[in-house]
Amino acid sequence: MQNSHSGVNQLGGVFVNGRPLPDSTRQKIVELAHSGARPCDISRILQVSNGCVSKILGRYYETGSIRPRAIGGSKPRVATPEVVSKIAQYKRECPSIFAWEIRDRLLSEGVCTNDNIPSVSSINRVLRNLASEKQQMGADGMYDKLRMLNGQTGSWGTRPGWYPGTSVPGQPTQDGCQQQEGGGENTNSISSNGEDSDEAQMRLQLKRKLQRNRTSFTQEQIEALEKEFERTHYPDVFARERLAAKIDLPEARIQVWFSNRRAKWRREEKLRNQRRQASNTPSHIPISSSFSTSVYQPIPQPTTPVSSFTSGSMLGRTDTALTNTYSALPPMPSFTMANNLPMQPPVPSQTSSYSCMLPTSPSVNGRSYDTYTPPHMQTHMNSQPMGTSGTTSTGLISPGVSVPVQVPGSEPDMSQYWPRLQ
C-alpha cells in the first residue's frame, strides 16, 4: 500500500499530492522566468500547473527564495509595531506611495530583511487598517496617535501638521516623493554593498519588468496595427511575429492590442446598429396606417339613396333571421326581375335548405315592403301603392349592394327569390 497518492495534472505532468515540487523543477521555473518566458509558457514547457508556477515565482520575487514554506503551523507575524509605524510614516510623507514602493524602502533602510519582509498584500492590509482606524477615531485622537508614531512633539492640530517642515499644504506631496526618490538612490547604494547585491538587483529588475506600465504606442505603430486590423481581426502567430519585427513591439503586446481592438470594434458596431435601427424607425405612426385595407374592405359607393341603408337594423327591421341572411350572402350585381318571367313554384328541397333563413311567422307573405323604405322617402312611396304591378321595390342582398326588384302586385311571395340566388 502506497503512503502517498501520485497523479497526472491537466498538462500531463506527474505530481505527488500534498508534497511540494522538487527543487530542480523550481530552479528551472526561475531560470525560464529570467530568460523572459511568460508564466503560461513555463507552465506548458515544464508541465506544471499555472497556479503552481505563479505561486513559486511570486514567492521568489518577494523573498528571493525558491524553497517551499513549512507545511503546517502558523507563519510568524511580520507586521510588527515597528514595521507598522514605518509604513504609516512613509504614507504620511508621500500619500500616493504604492505598497511595493513601501516594501522596497523597508528593505533599503534595513527595517526588514528578506526573511521577515511583509508581502505587498500585508502592507496593503496595514494601510487599510490605518485608514479604518482613522475613520473610527476622532480628529484629536487621530492626531495624537500619528504624533506618537512619528515621534515628534510638534502641533498636529492642523492639517499642514501632517507634513512636517512644510508650510504650503500643496507642497508636502512633492517633497515626500522627492525624499522617497532619494531613498531609492540609497536603495541602490545599500544593496550594492550587501553580499547578495547582484541577486537582489536582478530580482528587482525582473520584478519591475513584470510590473509594467501601460504600453505607449507611437503613431507609426498605431498606423501599422490599424492597417493589419483592417486586413483581418484575428491575425495568426506568423502575422503577429512579422508585425512585431516590423514595428519593434513584443508579440504578446500585439496580441493584447488586437484583443482590445476587437472589443472596441464590437462596441462601435453595436452603436452603429442602434443608430441604423433608430433612423429606419419613423418618429410617429401615421393615422391612416393604423387601418389596414386588408382588414377593412372598402364599401362601394351607393348608386341610389335607398342603398345607403345596408342592414335591417338601420331600417328599423327587427327580424334577425333576414338580417343574418342578407349579411351572409355574397355580393351580387344589380339585376331586375321582369313581370314576364315565369313564376316557378319553389322546389321543396330548395325551400327546406333555406328554411332556417325565413321567419317562422306566416304573415311574411302579407307584409308590405314599406318597412324598408327610409324616412325621407315615405311620402313618395305612399303616393304609389304597392298593389300595382309596376311598383318597384329595392331588396338588399349584402352591405353596400342594392338590387332593384320588380315585385308582382298580386302576391309578394318571398319564396320566388331563392331559386334565382343559387
Rank of each mutant, 00 (worst) to 15 (best):
R103D: 03
A33H: 00
P68Q: 01
H34R: 13
I29V: 06
S132G: 15
N3L: 11
Y143E: 10
I97S: 09
H34P: 00
I29C: 04
I29A: 02
L146F: 13
L32M: 09
T80R: 11
E109S: 11
P39K: 13
V120M: 03
Q136W: 12
Q136K: 08
K75C: 05
I45S: 14
Y61S: 15
R105D: 11
N3S: 12
R147E: 11
K75W: 04
R103E: 05
V78E: 01
G58I: 14
D144I: 13
I29R: 01
L11T: 03
G72Y: 02
V78R: 11
S49V: 03
Q135Y: 14
S65H: 11
I117S: 13
T80L: 11
I66D: 04
G141H: 15
I102P: 00
E82Q: 07
G36F: 04
S122M: 04
A33S: 14
D41A: 14
Q27I: 09
K55M: 02
L21K: 01
G138H: 09
G72M: 00
G141V: 09
C94M: 12
R38V: 03
E133Y: 13
L146K: 10
L127S: 14
P76S: 06
K145N: 11
Q27N: 08
Q10R: 09
Q135W: 14
V111K: 13
N9E: 01
N17H: 00
V14A: 14
R77T: 08
K86W: 12
R69T: 06
S24K: 13
S85W: 13
R92D: 08
K55V: 03
L32D: 02
R67V: 13
N9A: 01
F15C: 03
Q47E: 04
S108L: 13
S121Q: 04
G7F: 10
V48P: 05
Q10H: 08
L107S: 10
E93D: 13
D23N: 06
P39D: 05
I29F: 03
Y143W: 11
L127I: 12
K134V: 13
N150L: 04
Q27F: 09
R59K: 11
E82N: 08
R38P: 05
S35R: 13
V53D: 01
P76Y: 04
A88G: 15
N114Q: 13
T25V: 12
I97G: 08
S6Q: 07
E101Q: 04
G36C: 06
V120P: 07
E109T: 14
S49N: 03
E93G: 11
P20N: 03
G138Q: 07
G72V: 00
K134E: 15
I71Q: 06
G51D: 02
S43C: 05
P81A: 10
C94A: 10
I117G: 15
S108K: 12
E109F: 10
W100Q: 07
R105W: 14
A33T: 12
L32C: 10
G141F: 09
S43T: 04
S122I: 00
G18D: 01
L106R: 02
D41W: 05
I56S: 03
F15G: 01
S74A: 01
D41T: 14
R38M: 05
K86I: 13
L106A: 08
E93L: 13
S74E: 02
E101H: 13
C112N: 07
S96V: 15
C94D: 14
G7W: 15
N114W: 14
R147F: 09
G141R: 12
V48C: 14
C40D: 02
G138W: 14
S74V: 00
A37S: 10
Q2L: 10
K55E: 00
C94K: 12
S108N: 11
M148C: 10
V83T: 15
V30M: 08
V30L: 08
G7Y: 08
R19W: 04
I45L: 13
E62W: 03
